[in-house]
Design a protein around this nucleic acid. Structure first.
Lengths: 235, 235
DNA sequence: CTTTATTCTTTGTGATCACAAAAGCATGTA
DNA sequence: TACATGCTTTTGTGATCACAAAGAATAAAG
């Protein structure tokens, strides 16, 4: 029955107020994000429908949406798979993150009021706390929240969906990166960012965000780590 | 029957080799791109299915895909509409274009070989030609092709889908912009870009691309033009 | 043993239907 | 006039089915 790797997807309780399609979408999105599905794995509608115990219809819609967000790849022969990663593509994704996110940060800066600043401070200290506790997955989540909170300060925000698409494509590697974070995190870039925000220094903020991204993914960029990853991608 | 504006969508012959969903997707995408559907207009699956003379199913899928690409907006109450434009949002979209596209151009530069260079030159001269003939819609299309051809030189390209999403959101305004292009196009930025490419000067290329985008949309950014646009958006 | 041809199975696509939620609409009340 | 209330219609969601194309497996031929 299950030719390929059996696919173990973390299932969460479905909130009644949410449509089945939305639930399937979130479930699959998390599965991709957390690397639960190997790159290169071919996904079939009926198989996923069986695993998630829903009809094929919501799966169809969720897959199409994820494909549109570049989280999944539609092969010429109308088949869907998790895209494979390469060292070069990984590099491009990181550089794209830096370009877009530092831009988004600078564009958000004028809109940061006291409430937002307080929220960012709170997230910052939560990250420090999680870092002391070595709670790696928590760090990863809080870090994303920090970035998101920063960018969404801009009420005319248009880049966040693009940024989220990049996060989704980097997926498991963003987590991988944080797994060795402590050793290399010599400078707390978030504190730098906070200070730049308080001084209303757009350029310094961009530098801090760029450094934060670059340092957070530096190791994943090292040959060893990438190699293990690309190997899994290969087949 | 038709409560709102009747929706006049340009229909093209459907190629047999293409799925109905893909054809519907392209048709609706063009309709949004060319401003055939007013912003704020609520779209219903069945209405579109009737207009396009297909079953509701392909329309459902196409709508979801376009929504994922930020071409359409899903309101809280599971309804789909063409997003309204505001002056601020328009500005954000333009600035985002500049940030991402100049980045994409710089990243593509090392990969531009002679074939690509020749292709760009050819497009450049076609644009000059269309400009002499005042063929505005042709200019708009060729201009997009020029940008696309430049960015896709990079074989590890990851930003093009994001850029296309921005183009889609700017949609009709990119055309609007070109309608007064001739008067303001004092400097041919494409020639500047070509020259930068030949000199392998990444910084100059970025500046040329940024200027090209900024000048191409400058008038749309003027109060008058935006006002007429936002008025239509308003209701 | 390898390669080609044929059958059988799997899978995406698209159509149709049932249902519940949302929207529209008319009527009634302050 | 403005706002609430009950009814009707519209609409998105999700399930099921038929079908053609793609894949996999088996058989036949070199």
């Amino acid at each position: 029955m299950d030719k390929k790797s059996p696919i173990k997807i973390t299932l969460t309780e479905r909130d009644e107020s949410v449509t089945i399609t939305q639930w399937v979408y979130q479930t699959l999105r998390n599965a991709v994000m957390y690397g639960e599905i190997l790159p290169g794995r071919v996904l079939t509608i009926r198989e996923l429908a069986g695993i998630l115990d829903v009809s094929p219809m919501p799966v169809r819609e969720a897959l199409r949406q994820l494909a549109a967000e570049n989280a999944l790849e539609i092969q010429g022969n109308r088949r869907v798979m998790v895209p494979k990663m390469t060292a070069m593509k990984f590099n491009e994704l990181c550089e794209a993150r830096i370009a877009i996110e530092s831009h988004a940060a600078a564009r958000a800066l004028p809109y940061i009021d006291n409430d937002r600043l307080e929220q960012l401070r709170s997230l910052d200290s939560l990250i420090d706390q999680a870092q002391e506790e070595d709670n790696l997955s928590q760090i990863s989540i809080l870090n994303q929240n920090f970035h998101r909170s920063l960018y969404t300060a801009n009420p005319h925000q248009v880049t966040l969906p693009l940024i989220e698409s990049l996060w989704l494509q980097l997926g498991p590697f963003m987590r991988m990166a944080t797994s060795e974070l402590e050793e290399h995190y010599l400078v707390d870039r978030h504190n730098e960012a906070m200070s730049a925000i308080e001084r209303r220094d757009a350029y310094a903020l961009q530098m801090a965000i760029a450094a934060d991204i670059r340092e957070g993914i530096a190791f994943a960029g090292t040959p060893e780590m990438l190699h293990t990853f690309i190997e899994n991608s290969g087949h």
